[in-house]
Nucleic acid binder design. Structure first.
Length: 584
RNA sequence: GGGCGCGUAGCUCAGUUGGACAGAGCGUCGGACUUCUAAUCCGAUGGUCGCGGGUUCGAAUCCCGUCGCGCUCGCCA
């Protein structure tokens, strides 16, 4: 409703300005502060004061006078407050909000007909997912869900880096070292098992003498050349390692849950010749230079100082070369390609975009968005060095602490329903994992995060459980109301308290929040909305009882509002990938 | 050193297409459970929006400079 109201306001202001022969390039439509009763306002009078030759409040008066509300369905009235023109919503706005909110899909926008591939995580298959990387699947999964809610046909991809040097090192190490030389694995799972070889191999390369090092490097180079040459046996050797480790990593990611429609292997673009094709076409481009025995792109025309090497002197391709072929494949198969990357990939991403342009692609199809690393107070996390907190450990600890909370609260629980052991398991999991996700997804991705246990697992603060609790409360009310034989209505005329109106206004905003968050690829906007919505609901909850309402009509309408609230909060959580518990 | 990002209350963060007194949570202090679940609510406390200039009727938001932190500048990914 808010979106319709906003466009009505924009149309009305534009028409009024046109009628007054004033410029309409900036309508100044904005949301007023909370203590102003209007839903939208225009500050256009400030800018026109000079042109009109009158003080802003007088201009605001003129604009307000000129506004024609005959065609507006949702604008009830217009007035001015100093230099501002304020717009108030009509009853139809509330009525239509309440009806729309009763749809379980509320918040989802109409189909755009656009197909979008969201690539996220794509962590190198070298070992268990650690918390430093975990921002990617949590942020990326939320972006994918958000774009789906915004009406797109979304597919999620994990691009598997199975052709780089690190995989060659890993394969060599796996085939070279004996299990007896390794420490016990931290968990009984393939990624924890195999990462020991990877770490051992890297240690060896750092400490070996010249002769040993040369032999090892030769073995590693042979694997890389084998991949480049399309040698089947080499692919199989590498796949033994990659598929096992990736299988383990997927189990961690599925706990979040972050699931993928496709795992696309980098080697695919070597094997099918696309990477070679990219090399050929780049060599022909006017930006290609051959320096120091390697083929490079001079990207100074794109404002990038560093050359991009796309073919090594030994004729093997580099990650970015293969990624170019990968992106052309995405462009061919999807309308838009969104990629979630760590900030350390920013330069490479700019080079990729420039090179895609050189290859003749429409780079408007590409949107790359970045997040800052999650660090520990003592520094960064590294799979190779084995430093950091594993995602599995974080989730286990969070669920454990959530369970303690649930059990502590059992005694003081007023509600008459008995929680079974299964309920306790479910709540601990929903709350524990939800808290971790919310902690990460609620912050602007560009801001750095220092991981601290206490803060990540604080269930009281602005957190998932606070929002989840609202959903549980809605479910509780609806279940009691059903027992009492109350049937929900959409009769908004009996909902006239401040708390009820405020809640309706927040319900009305939800689709606009989805739209804005999707446009900007910023799921944290939805997280902020969810928290504010929960606040508004809790005030309503305290002041407006459904079961003890003064009369049946009020009870029925409030029940309708509770239902709309439940859909709003459930879908806001769904965008964030957080479960909505029926009871807590 | 060059490029990019970040710097808002004691702490963790919203707010940045320039607009109505800069907002939350945590913390601290004080209130509210015979009332649909108190993982809740209400009140109080708390800010030179890193710092200095500039543009503007108006700047946390834009521009310049400066300081601090992060990332980056490989024939790695």
């Amino acid at each position: 409703m808010f979106r319709t109201f906003r466009s009505e306001v924009e149309d009305a202001v534009e028409a009024a300005l046109a009628a007054l022969d004033l410029p309409t390039d900036d309508l100044g439509v904005e949301e007023p502060p909370e203590d102003v009763p209007a839903t939208l306002a225009s500050s256009v009078a400030f800018r026109l004061a000079g042109e009109v030759g009158a003080p802003p409040p007088a201009v605001a008066e003129d604009v307000a006078e000129a506004i024609d509300l005959d065609d507006a369905e949702y604008i009830a009235s217009v007035d001015t407050q100093g230099p501002y023109v304020n717009f108030y919503v009509a009853d139809a706005y509330y009525a239509d909000t309440l009806s729309a909110g009763r749809d379980a899909e509320y918040g989802a926008l109409p189909d755009t007909g656009q197909s979008v591939v969201v690539e996220h995580t794509s962590a190198n298959p070298t070992g268990p997912v650690h918390v430093g990387r975990a921002r990617n699947p949590i942020f990326g999964d939320a972006v994918a869900r958000l774009l789906e809610y915004a009406g797109n046909d979304v597919e999620t991809h994990y691009y598997v880096n199975d052709a780089g040097r690190q995989v060659a090192v890993f394969t060599w190490a796996y085939e070279t070292f004996e299990e007896s030389e390794l420490p016990e694995p931290e968990r009984d799972r393939a990624d924890y098992d195999l990462v020991r070889y990877y770490r051992k191999g890297n240690e060896y390369l750092e400490s070996a003498d010249d002769e040993e090092l040369a032999a090892a490097e030769e073995a590693i180079a042979e694997i890389m050349q084998g991949l480049e040459a399309g040698d089947e046996e080499t692919y199989e050797r590498v796949a033994v390692v990659v598929d096992q480790v990736l299988g383990g990593m997927r189990e961690s990611l599925e706990r979040l849950p972050a699931e993928f429609d496709r795992f696309v292997k980098e080697t695919k673009f070597i094997r099918n010749g696309d990477a070679d094709d990219v090399v050929r076409r780049l060599k022909d481009s006017e930006h290609a230079v051959y320096e120091e025995d390697a083929w490079q792109l001079d990207l100074s025309a794109f404002g990038l100082e560093k050359n991009l090497v796309f073919l090594r002197s030994d004729d093997t391709t580099l990650y970015t070369t293969r990624d170019l072929a990968h992106h052309e494949w995405k462009f061919d198969n999807y309308d838009e390609a969104v990629t979630i990357l760590g900030e350390d990939h920013k330069l490479q991403a700019e080079q990729l975009e420039a090179a895609l342009d050189i290859l003749g692609n429409d780079t408007d199809q590409l949107r790359q968005t970045f997040y800052s690393w999650v660090n520990l107070p003592e520094g960064g996390m590294s799979t190779r060095e084995g430093t950091g907190v594993d995602l599995d450990d974080l989730l286990d600890e969070s669920v454990r602490r959530a369970r303690e909370e649930v059990e502590e609260r059992l005694d003081s629980r007023i509600r008459s329903d008995e929680l079974t052991d299964d309920d306790i398991d479910r709540i601990a999991r929903q709350v524990g994992i939800g808290a971790v996700r919310y902690d990460i997804v609620s912050k602007q991705p560009t801001k750095g995060i220092t991981f601290e246990w206490e803060r990540a697992l604080d269930f009281e603060a602005q957190s998932a459980p606070y929002v989840q609790y609202v959903h549980a409360r809605c479910c509780g009310i609806e279940s009691e109301a059903a027992d009492a034989g109350i049937e929900a209505s959409a009769d908004v005329s009996v909902l006239d308290t401040d708390a009820e109106r405020a809640l309706l206004r927040d319900v009305a905003r939800f689709p606009a929040v989805i739209e804005q968050a999707a446009d900007d690829l910023e799921p944290h906007v939805v997280a902020t909305f969810a928290r504010e919505f929960a606040e508004t609901f809790n005030t309503f909850y305290r002041e407006c009882s459904v079961l003890n309402a003064d009369d049946e009509a009020v009870a029925a309408a409030r029940l309708g509002l509770v239902e709309a609230s439940r859909h709003t909060v459930a879908n806001a959580l769904d965008v964030l990938g957080i479960e909505a518990p029926d009871s807590m």
